[in-house]
Design a protein around this nucleic acid. Structure first.
Lengths: 340, 340
DNA sequence: CCTGGAAACGTAACCGATAACGATTGCAGT
DNA sequence: ACTGCAATCGTTATCGGTTACGTTTCCAGG
């Protein structure tokens, strides 16, 4: 293999092999209609020049590119899990994955980021896109699969069973004897946030406890949003004995506020989160939370998108994956209560 | 904004605005030579059609694309840290980031993956690439920055101060009174592995302790490689009282083997790792290790690559970042020894 | 009124690859 | 030798933009 300065192009290969670019293209793509001798010549030239076909040129010309895109608002620890799962689903499938992050939009909280990202990719580069936690509906000429879609979306999506997970979490607190349970909600437009709140309401209602709207704080999944809400809940004359937060990030902030106010966890206050991010195992006490496997979400999303692109998807438009309660140290019976 | 099925192309905009595509291009790219009235017309058409320029077409024609690439062998939890750091360095710089993962190569341990990935991107899509832990030298027409390069590489790179980190780790063990310290090495071709072994040797030599080659196991950073090596070390007639592993992944396997052999950590055996991956804080006992900030590595690599592309890089070819010893519970003085 | 030159804009080649189509070759059958 | 049909291969238009270059417009100055 000869290392050249400028990367070899298809016409370089064609010149060296003494054929036309069309023939090189046919060899590269395994099309019919090339003699064995010519194939060998072209292969040789390709090896000599270290030729690798340009993703860009191929994408521009072809309708199918065999590349799937993934766009995300920001990179978190769970993003790596999603990517791992997606790559597992794609391994040796012939589909490559491109993750695109725009430097202007990254980290800023501007509406419509997912549309712009997808538009940039789906013009010609990718055959379809996975969108992680979109804030709005995303449309595209090519298939889209959302992980954690917006509420009311009928588009293709993969999501955890947030309703059941939240119900289980609150039932866990109820089982410990809690009766006044606060809730810190997520970004209202997201289906995940809505389902988790529904689970909270359902568990209480099923236990015959009326839902007290003043015990619900309107967070937005952004951890910082939880701090003032937790403060407000815990400084009331009649504070809740437990708080269920719609995400681990927010639950961690609840722990911070509790420490700041001199409340012992789980002695004075029980806390439950949702997501099971790695950090929640590291706090003291470790956070009881609801696990949703981001790996699994990534895996299913990629599998679904792949089938959508090839036109062989048979499953439902919306895939729901199970969740699991992870009991750690942040919950205990309320003061002066006996375990029911 | 009208939602159309097929994404609007530049000639669509040109037709609607009643100008040529060249003029649209000039407006989009802010070039001189367009009247204010025409600019307004074109802007209007762009908004009406929801036009977004095609990354692919632009890349193909232009030499500069303002997109940087990042390629990695696999997605790990630390990969997200690298990405976070890189995006921080790139935010509002005008450079976007593309991460490319090939489904054929992913997870398989085939030589030359980094070359193929980079070739795929640098043909035309990106202005430069960050390569995370390459296994070989990577060449390209466009600038390359390696995170954790191969040994002996003179190319641009960012790496942690592995030598100092390893030295500190072993000095910590020596300070506790250990004299027979085993070492499980990493993939020999990587500079990081070599430096960590050098640090191990240097610390021992400085303490006047001869290096015993039979106490060194040849791992490859793959956690599984450590299991038989740890077993061999610990089942000797004269086992070491401490083991320093060149990565946390391997150190965690050492803990497993110790448990399997009925050895108490840190009572019977002290263990130190390297990397400070999230999991090392979760084990019982938690792993003492050397922290290298992957966030910082990603940040510096992106900053360097950006400057390299714009031609304004003034710093050294190789950037070295400090490390820090994180003392947790996996180390104690050896049995029957007093702290020196 | 005429000329010169800059500003504004269109035309067309081009980036690297693909694919429809046309041209050439080889060979079997008459 | 001639026809006919495959198999093989080259030509060329094309994907969506960018840009060198040419053309037109417009206005100031002589």
């Amino acid at each position: 293999m000869i290392e050249v300065n400028a990367p070899a192009t298809m016409s370089d290969v064609a010149r060296v092999a003494g054929v036309s670019t069309a023939t090189v293209s046919r060899v590269v793509n395994g099309h019919y209609g090339v003699s064995a001798r010519t194939i060998a010549q072209v292969r040789l030239a390709i090896d000599q020049l270290g030729y690798e076909s340009s993703l860009v040129a191929t994408s521009l010309r072809r309708s199918r590119t065999n590349v799937l895109g993934l766009v995300t608002h920001s990179f978190q620890s769970y993003t790596a899990e999603v990517l791992k799962g997606a790559m597992k689903a794609l391994s040796r499938s012939g589909f490559d994955l491109i993750i695109y992050a725009n430097s202007d939009l990254y980290g800023s909280y501007s509406e419509g980021w997912e549309k712009r990202h997808v538009a940039r990719l789906s013009g010609t580069l990718t055959d379809g896109c996975i969108v992680v936690t979109p804030w709005g509906e995303v449309q595209s000429r090519t298939p889209i699969v959302a992980i954690d879609p917006v509420r009311g979306s009928t588009a293709h999506s993969v999501t955890a069973d947030n309703l059941a997970g939240a119900t289980t979490a609150v039932e866990h607190l109820l089982g410990l004897g809690h009766r006044r349970i606060g809730f810190i909600a997520g970004r209202a437009s997201l289906a995940a946030a809505w389902s988790r709140e529904e689970g909270y309401r359902a568990a209480l209602t099923d236990a015959g406890i009326p839902v007290d709207p003043t015990l619900i704080g309107e967070g937005d999944f952004n951890p910082e949003s939880a701090t003032p809400l937790a403060r407000a809940l815990l400084q009331r004359a009649d504070p809740p004995t437990a708080i269920f937060a719609a995400s681990d990030g927010m639950a961690l902030k609840v722990l911070e506020v509790a420490a700041e106010l001199g409340l012992a966890v789980p002695g004075d206050l029980s806390v439950v989160g949702f997501d099971n991010i790695p950090e929640s195992a590291l706090t003291l006490p470790a956070l009881t939370t609801v696990d949703q496997s981001m790996y699994q979400l990534g895996y299913e999303a990629a599998r679904m998108l792949k089938s959508l692109v090839t036109g062989e998807w048979e499953g439902p438009r919306q895939v729901v994956l199970p969740t699991e309660l992870v009991v750690r140290g942040s919950c205990a019976p309320p003061r002066g209560a006996t375990r029911t």
